[in-house]
Design a protein around this nucleic acid. Structure first.
Lengths: 226, 226
DNA sequence: GCGGGCAATACTGTTGACACTTTTTGGTCC
DNA sequence: GGACCAAAAAGTGTCAACAGTATTGCCCGC
């Protein structure tokens, strides 16, 4: 029985992540080891390791003897993440365009046509990362950055007015991939993400012009403006 | 006393990393919690968390109930890392070129001129990442990828015949940065790393043509060729 | 002699208790 | 009334012991 053995650390990890996504533990909120251990019916050990893993993925910040806190994702953080995504996803689509077999390419197009672009926005990006053939890029995008994106979107919703454009841009990228034009696909992907970054930049400008009207309930924001 | 409090986990983390770098724990070798705990005079708890942190940084692989092993960095892994570096460091130098103050730029040039390009090769890359102003890119490069690079180089030495070219390429990049030509700096950096990637690719080709002469002592390579 | 099954071993996963640090609370002095 | 100090409370860091799983070595049947 050497199959997919799930230890309690993994279970607790997912459980805490769900708690964060659902907002039960708000962004910037404290993560109490003992309370969580009691809630999940395990000892503090697994909870400790799960929190450590969350810290390793950048979802939780913590220093010795201080309370662990869920990361407080500001718009500025998102801009940093999008700058990173722009470069990495450009490489991702470039590699995928060069590496995919004709069959895999056709499958990707079919899947996306079937979904009609109505699938979840990240699906295409995930699929491309998986097809890049570079496991490290795939891990960075799918296991680290997209977690943070989901977290941010769960809080603030997607940037409005972007969704319709995004679908058209996705089709452009797919066409370039099918034509095996790796350079074009990279440029289109980078422009696609850069455009989203600019939207965030505008949001940051308006936000700093007029202070946020109301902090979400349960938030602690004191050190954000420092 | 709210200073830089170092917990035992941090100490053990560094100690194990040094053990790996020095080769005392060979690449692919097992990491025994109890033995390390006994050696460092601590309990298994801190060792466990340190190993978990090393796992989070990709230096150790592990699955439940199996022994933890130091990652076995193949040339193929290095190629993946260099592809990732090519995209991220391109963005890094682009952002740094746009963000650095004139003073910081001059300081960077002075430091590098003083070192005469004889400094450790990674220093320039580290400095650029620090000046990019993007903390996530800095963390990815300095806290994750460069660890793996040091590990790989400690085992196999730098790719021969590259060192002299690299210095000239570094100066080209610095000139582009000083001229505030962000696009050129990005292109040069990407070409710089792509060239190193090609050297690795050639190494991979010759290595697969003639099987490696001798596995390093203490290595376990059984599952690598699968 | 050799392969399959079974007991002994070694190691990892988990737990509850104890030690140390931070935070809060209450009281005192100015 | 407010600032400062001390003690209690809360929470994290560490430990040693126990439980569960993979590995190793051995014996038996062929």
């Amino acid at each position: 029985m050497t199959g997919q053995q799930r230890t309690r650390v993994d279970t607790v990890f997912d459980a805490i992540f769900q708690l964060i996504l659902s907002g039960e533990i708000p962004l910037g909120g404290v993560v109490n080891e003992a309370a969580l251990a009691d809630r999940f019916g395990v000892s503090r050990g697994p909870v400790r390791e799960a929190v450590k893993a969350l810290q390793g993925r950048g979802l939780v910040t913590k220093e010795p003897y201080f309370k662990a806190r869920v990361v407080d994702l500001s718009v500025h953080d998102m801009i940093e993440i999008f700058q990173l995504r722009e470069s990495v996803e450009g490489m991702s689509v470039k590699l995928a365009t060069l590496a995919m077999s004709d069959e895999a390419m056709q499958r990707l197009l079919d899947d996306f046509e079937q979904a009609g672009g109505n699938g979840r926005v990240l699906d295409l990006h995930v699929r491309i990362a998986e097809e890049s053939g570079n496991s490290r890029i795939q891990s960075l995008l799918c296991d680290e950055l997209y977690y943070l994106l989901r977290l941010y979107r769960a809080r603030s919703g997607s940037t409005p007015g972007r969704h319709d454009n995004a679908s058209a841009e996705h089709w452009q990228i797919l066409r370039a991939m099918k034509a095996r034009d790796a350079e074009l696909a990279e440029s289109l992907m980078r422009a696609h993400i850069a455009r989203a970054t600019e939207a965030l930049q505008r949001l940051l400008d308006t936000e700093s012009a007029q202070p946020p009207p109301e902090a979400a309930k349960g938030r602690r924001r004191k050190e954000t403006e420092a």
